[in-house]
């Protein structure tokens, strides 16, 4: 069975949990106390991932770190429809990859502001917030024009892709880092759509968009 080195409050770990849940893939959780325990910096976990980063996914002989890489692997391996990581069109594949890269930027900004404000990590929260606002502005504009063309998701196409999963958590958790989304209405509508994907699961700080869902 798949094993996920996981931490509840981590948006990057949540990406993996979210896609695994949506695809209905069973997995075993191995909790790593990132905060306050800082167990990701201890030898036991460094033996799993020398970079000391969560999440890590093990599947058979494969051991994979880095959340975007995990999304790509899970989608290619466990989504027979191929729609979560579409490769048929070079244009779409390129754009999916572009947003996976964008998600790295969100981790460096929105997530950093949250870690500084909420967990006392030594990051420049103001710089992180400024950086996040620049990214959110680009994303909101993109999504607004997508909507005008009848497109619901970051990459073109009728269905969401790993790009949406990769960008969702740190957008949704941004207010924990003091980044309001009040000037990004198209982003807010997109997050509602992500929450309505069948199989969607929540994490602490992220609420459902419909009643009685989990």
């Amino acid at each position: 069975m798949i094993r996920l080195y996981d931490f509840d409050l981590s948006g990057n770990c949540y990406k993996a949990r979210l896609l695994l849940a949506i695809l209905g893939v069973e997995y075993e959780r191995r909790n790593v106390d990132f905060f306050p325990g800082l167990k990701h910096r201890e030898p036991e976990f460094l033996a799993v991932n020398p970079l000391g980063q969560l999440p890590v996914l093990e599947d058979g002989d494969l051991r994979l770190a880095q959340s975007q890489a995990i999304l790509v692997y899970v989608a290619r391996k466990y989504d027979p429809s191929g729609r979560w990581y579409p490769l048929d069109s070079p244009e779409i594949a390129g754009q999916v990859q572009q947003w996976l890269g964008f998600a790295e930027g969100l981790t460096a900004t929105a997530s950093a502001a949250r870690l500084a404000d909420g967990m006392g990590f030594d990051f420049d929260a103001e710089a992180a917030r400024d950086g996040a606002h620049k990214l959110f502005a680009v994303m909101d504009e993109h999504l607004w024009f997508q909507e005008r063309q009848g497109q619901d998701w970051l990459a073109p196409g009728a269905a969401p892709t790993v790009a949406d999963i990769a960008c969702f958590p740190y957008v949704m958790l941004s207010e924990e880092g003091g980044i309001s989304r009040e000037t990004y209405p198209a982003i807010r509508r997109w997050t509602d759509r992500v929450k309505r994907i069948p199989g969607f699961v929540v994490m602490p700080g992220i609420f459902p968009a419909v009643l009685g869902s989990q």
Binding site: R188, R189, A209
Partner: peptide, 21 residues
């Protein structure tokens, strides 16, 4: 305070006017 197309079904638009959310 919003565009008609902002206020889509089953959504709650977050608006602001003179500091009033």
């Amino acid at each position: 305070v919003a565009a008609s197309e902002d206020v889509i079904p089953r959504h709650v638009f977050q608006g602001k006017l003179w500091g009033q959310e």
